[in-house]
Design a binder for these strands. Structure first.
Length: 612
RNA sequence: CGGGGUGUGGCGCAGUUGGUAGCGCGCGGCGUUUGGGACGCCGAGGCCGGAGGUUCGAGUCCUCUCACCCCGACCA
């Protein structure tokens, strides 16, 4: 419809002219002219299924570490993901704009992040010797826009977003599009009068994200998350469960509790109420690990205290103590100690405060911030180090034997630990973070002076939120969740094309080619996106490429099917094909597509279920 | 940044005790084939990541360096 296939005179036989504004994506493609060839074998250094398949199926090609070109097929997928995001952002009142990729450093100095952010932000100078940075996110820029454009409470609330390239010089990119240095992200920003307005927009985003991911066919969970260096009051992450995920989420199968491990808690053992016993030294040769200590003294791990030493970013020595059966959660410890970052301390640093590696305890140490876990507070008479090689102390007790500076939850939640809300055993799953929502508050509006006047003429900082979705990461994550040993199985909503069409037969056999040409024309006229394998390849090659690329429906004709006046139609996800009369191909395909879309749409309608 | 690994034709790989490079796939041509990655014949394509060194001679040994991958540290 409106797509003119102009092989007659147009210089490129695969070219199609489309009226401006009619569609975001070209509706059809002949594989004989497609840019990008499929690979029989994946490059040896690709390991993740999504990485291997997206390379093999000619969706993308690497340029450098964590830098990829998207080929036509991959770009179509990403654009479809982005279009879904657009629609759902617009549906909650979002206005799309576009902010720059290159920023003057001054705006980052205003927020204080120029110095706070490490080498993952790339800095350079322009020809005038001015400091510049590559955008890794856009809070500063949107806040700058807000302070220029927003003056009055009458202009709020507001929701703006863009879909823009970001550059983060990750210390280690990995896994194809899952974690890259250059990537595209939808980031939206909300501007509100107050916390209540922010709450509303936060919830709107939550629901919009659920619809987005359901429409894209992703299985996900929403978890509570750390607010990190962004400096905000609340944050949730949308996590796609995958064995290749970099995050670990703790989930309660009973009550639905779910948190990123960074912040996950668990039900603690009740305090034993045991009376403190006198501290005494005990000789414990060659017991530098908690396990060897417990074995040597024949006591449970839970009767020991484990010391872990860090150097904080501020230079302070952080001395963490936790019961021997638990592990330190560094994110929690960072917060409890008030440090931006923690690095394991060196042996020299440990000795300098009067402790001994392998035999450490806070008893008698100096110049250290002692942070103890609640478990240490609630478990009297633990065996701890004597700060002397080969010796430990029985019956150490905080308060009596040493003075903790901070008592906090610094314990890492693990699979099997009791759920903090219902007590059922938690499960731990690997997950890929595909989206996040974040209450920024007034951190940036205060720093940059983005204020509005209320009805009384009083000035207030704008209350902000920021919300991100990586479109490339979403695309790759969909592949992680939707593939088999033959290739990708795209959800129809994000498939590069709706239909793979092909003819099967000899090069000189004209009937299958003519029949396929006609179907190509009919399907295209019916508004179907068709990838037409018109190449003179053998059946196996075409079937394998179709399976690899993973369009949801495959239509094929050959002398065999044409003998009965039929075409073969097969769902990529199904094992069996159906045969329908040639005249029924278009309605059958349309019907199958409608059903596929309907499933995703119905899922999306049910959004809101994960909301707390 | 620490640990490990890999760099040889577009992709996957081999290359012996040092003797001036080979296989499969892919690519071009011709022919035969034609429903799940066909077959035959012919052909194109490689300063062996780079630099230095040892040697009569280096893909191979030594030093340095660059790139990429994996594990960890780190992280929107």
């Amino acid at each position: 419809m409106g797509h003119l296939h102009l092989t007659g005179w147009y210089p490129h036989p695969g070219a199609t002219l489309t009226k401006f504004g009619e569609g975001e994506v070209q509706q059809q493609m002949r594989m004989s002219h497609m840019f990008g060839r499929t690979l029989r074998e994946a490059p040896g250094d690709a390991e993740l299924p999504s990485h291997r398949l997206m390379l093999r199926a000619a969706f993308m090609r690497p340029l450098g570490a964590g830098i990829y070109s998207l080929l036509p097929l991959g770009w179509r997928v990403v654009r479809k993901v982005e279009q879904i995001i657009r629609e759902e952002m617009n549906a909650i009142g979002g206005q799309e704009l576009l902010m720059p990729v290159v920023h003057p450093a001054d705006i980052w100095r205003e927020s204080g992040r120029y110095d706070a952010v490490g080498p993952e932000m790339t800095r350079f100078k322009d020809r005038g010797d001015r400091d510049m940075v590559l955008a890794m996110t856009h809070e500063e820029i949107v806040t700058d826009l807000a302070r220029q454009e927003i003056n009055s409470y009458r202009q709020l609330p507001m929701l703006v977003y863009h879909i823009q390239t970001k550059w983060r010089d990750e210390p280690r990119s990995r896994g194809g599009l899952i974690r890259v240095r250059e990537f595209t992200m939808k980031d939206s920003y909300t501007l509100d009068l107050d916390e209540a307005g922010l709450d509303e927009q936060y919830k709107n985003h939550w629901r919009a994200y659920e619809r987005i991911f359901r429409r894209a066919g992703l299985e996900f969970v929403v978890v509570g998350a750390d607010t990190g260096m962004m400096g905000g009051s609340a944050s949730h992450e949308f996590m796609a469960l995958s064995q290749y995920g970099e995050d670990i989420v703790l989930i309660c199968p009973e009550c639905g509790y779910a948190d990123n491990r960074e912040v996950a808690t668990f039900e603690r053992d009740p305090a034993t109420g045991e009376a403190p016993l006198p501290m005494e030294e005990v000789e414990t040769p060659s017991t530098t690990t908690i396990q060897s200590l417990a074995d040597f003294l024949d006591i449970p791990l839970a009767k020991t205290a484990k010391a872990v030493f860090y150097r904080g970013d501020s230079g302070k020595f952080v001395f963490a103590v936790i019961r021997g059966d638990l592990d330190i959660n560094e994110t929690k410890l960072r917060k409890a100690s008030g440090e931006g970052g923690l690095t394991p301390a060196t042996v020299e640093e440990i000795r300098a405060i009067g402790a001994e590696p392998g035999y450490g305890s806070p008893v008698g140490v100096r110049n250290a911030l002692v942070v103890i876990d609640e478990s240490v507070r609630d478990s009297p008479n633990l065996v701890a180090g004597a700060n002397r090689i080969g010796w430990h102390l029985r019956n150490t007790n905080p308060g009596r034997d040493y003075a903790p500076d901070v008592i906090a939850d610094i314990a890492s939640a693990e699979a099997g630990f009791p759920c903090p809300t219902c007590g059922a055993p938690l499960t731990a799953e690997r997950a890929i973070e595909v989206g996040n929502i974040f209450k920024l508050g007034t951190r940036y509006s205060q720093a940059l002076g983005a204020e509005y006047l209320d009805a009384e003429g009083m000035s207030h900082p704008i209350v902000m939120g920021s919300y991100g979705i990586g479109s490339g990461r979403v695309s790759a994550t969909i592949v992680e969740q939707h593939h088999d040993d033959r290739g990708i199985i795209w959800p129809v909503s994000v498939a590069p094309y709706e239909v793979s069409l092909m003819w099967i037969g000899g090069e000189n056999e004209t009937e299958p080619q003519e029949a396929a040409d006609r179907l190509f024309d009919e399907l295209t006229r019916a508004g179907t996106e068709v990838l037409y394998d018109d190449r003179p390849e053998r059946a196996g090659v075409k079937f394998n490429d179709a399976d690899l690329i993973g369009n949801p429906i495959r239509v094929s004709v050959s002398s065999r099917t044409l003998g009965k006046g039929e075409a073969e139609i097969k769902l990529r996800a199904a094992s069996e094909a159906v045969f329908v009369p040639l005249t029924e191909v278009v309605p059958t395909v349309r019907g199958m597509l409608d059903a596929l879309y309907a499933t995703l749409r119905d899922d999306a309608r049910a959004a809101g279920g994960s909301m707390e």
